[in-house]
Design a protein around this nucleic acid. Structure first.
Lengths: 346, 346
DNA sequence: CTGAAAGCGCTAACAT
DNA sequence: ATGTTAGCGCTTTCAG
């Protein structure tokens, strides 16, 4: 397709700087064996000419690849959009290019994307999004990735623990605990959970946090309705419908992410159920619109943009002895969608 | 079980199939000049061995690049996230990889990104987002891109007209007209506009639509306050502050995109100004959260996801004689943020 | 410290 | 129809 790029090659820079190809290469790669003086001259000339190495030639010749592959569920999901924004932000600074693909929360498709990225010789692969409770798929992904890592590829994951790679781990359990404790503190006891697919690690972890908070108040998950639907807005709507129909006395709904919470709020609005007067609602993630919803959403803030950056930072460092883990921290953000439990004591 | 073997080269496949390198290359590329029989044998051997071509070698040697570069303002802006989602969706189907970079709405940075993408030998470049009213920057971008296109690169743009490339053109003017006519129809006359930077084509076009609707009602843009701030949420907030302070009798605010509209709504909420009772608000784009805001936002729907797909479709077709243009259509979505003008007859 | 030269794996002219 | 060969632009020995 595209034949000539800028047509500017390393050899041109070399000539212009009055040095050989090899020296120019060394200078720009910051390798040993060039005097500071010459190296600086070369770098300056390269700069002036706006030289950018041809990554294909570079990689083919055995150099490092400068593209990072990023796999997300969907970029047009705000959670992943923010993560992607973080990755791209740091990548820009490092002059790296980011290739984004969608996993669609389908383990098979995700595996295909990983393979594709490897075949394209991405030097770094970042996988964002929940792992699956699907041992076979996970094992295969792990096998492929560990082969890739053995070959020098760097991998970082966001929000999954079982992949033998450096990981950014969102505070899912602690966050689930925080948000549940908040509700319990407001006096709510008839709480329902709008959860995503039960096979997603994220769902499992957040549920664990919910469960532990309940336990501290002498309750158990078994006491409350947990509705598993899709981990997206529409799932929140249908979950709410079910909760309303089957457990009308519910006073609070925990949505396991903000997308679902938006669906929950929408359905409550349609049904004319006041929030938080008759029903409190909490979400999880604090996507940027959470503050603008009707009413503004109480949720757990996860630093998505930073998470993206952190993942790339991890991947940029040389591999350690074992997988590194980097927790994200979290913050309970109380807004207008939660209030005291209505007094329905008798 | 075929496993993509690094170290497995085309020459190995060729030997194994008892043909020459060139023949194997032709067979796998589906090019002319190989008997069906031989071609099939080669393909089968390649399959058995799990051969995957090295894209770097392929591209370096002048083959087609399978990556498409996408430049957006920011992926974590919902408007661009949806466009990106559309591009990636189609790219996935075509087994293409998408490289995303941020322009940050800075002409200089955008130009740098274009150059970077070209240097990376992206076969296709898609630029989403408004052009700038900056002749020098635009001219330079056009020059670089036309060189790229002359070399066989394909370019498609979304929402800018002055780049000599195939374009997807959002119905900015018609949409601006529609939304303004809606307000006028509700009896509003004291209308203010919260606009983005005056140099953005998108802003200019949408304003033109606003102006034409006003004209039909015997009004003119000069009659109303137009506040230019940043084309993002925060800009909507500050614009609203100014409008409230300087034109307290305003009954409706036109925000030139949904992000700004969100800021407008937020500020009105803070000030305790009822929407739509005391103030109507309209946005533009219909990002997916527009329906979930407080109150839900009246806006103009643009098919962002399709726009992304269309752009890639255009780029995938061979270049035409001249630049193709593809309008998007639009749809006025009336929700709860607009109502009749309050009766302040004096 | 620097330069010359040998590939990396593939495509595409050029031969046969 | 098939084979031979010259690069693509870079990194990396290996000489000097």
């Amino acid at each position: 397709m595209p034949k000539p790029g800028p047509g500017l090659r390393l050899i041109d820079v070399a000539h212009r700087a009055g040095v050989s190809l090899a020296t120019a290469s060394r200078a720009l790669a910051g390798r040993e064996g060039v005097s500071e003086e010459v190296a600086n001259r070369v770098r300056q000339v390269a700069d002036e000419l706006g030289y950018v190495a041809n990554p294909f030639a570079r990689t083919l010749a055995g150099g490092a690849s400068t593209t990072v592959g990023l796999i997300v569920h969907q970029v047009d999901d705000p959670y992943f959009a923010e993560i992607a924004g973080g990755v791209i932000g740091l990548a820009d600074e490092q002059r790296l290019l980011v290739q984004i693909c969608h996993s669609g929360r389908d383990p098979g498709h995700e595996l295909r994307q990983i393979r594709h990225l490897i075949a394209q010789r991405a030097g770094i692969i970042i996988i964002a999004g929940s792992g699956y409770d699907d041992p076979r798929a996970e094992a295969e992904a792990e096998a492929v990735l560990s082969g890739y890592q053995r070959g020098g590829g760097r991998v970082a994951v966001i929000g999954r623990h079982a992949l033998g790679a450096d990981a950014v781990l969102p505070d899912n359990e602690a966050g689930g605990h925080a948000v549940t404790a908040h509700l319990l503190g407001l006096g709510h006891r008839r709480i329902a959970v709008a959860a995503g697919a039960p096979g997603l690690n994220t769902v499992i972890d957040r549920m664990a946090g919910v469960a532990s908070a309940l336990r501290e108040h002498g309750l158990s998950l078994d006491d409350l309705p947990v509705v598993h639907t899709d981990f997206v807005r529409e799932g929140g709507r249908t979950a709410t419908e079910r909760i309303l129909a089957e457990h009308p006395s519910t006073t609070a709904i925990i949505a396991l992410n903000d997308a679902m919470a938006m669906g929950v709020l929408a359905m409550l609005r349609e049904r004319g159920i006041g929030v938080p007067t008759r029903m409190s609602v909490v979400g999880f993630d604090d996507v940027s619109v959470a503050a603008d919803l009707a009413p503004s959403l109480t949720t757990v803030r996860l630093p998505m943009i930073d998470m993206g950056r952190m993942a790339l930072e991890l991947a940029l460092e040389p591999a350690g002895a074992g997988p590194r883990r980097r927790p994200t921290g979290h913050q309970l953000i109380v807004r207008d969608s939660t209030g005291p439990a209505p007094d329905q004591s008798r």
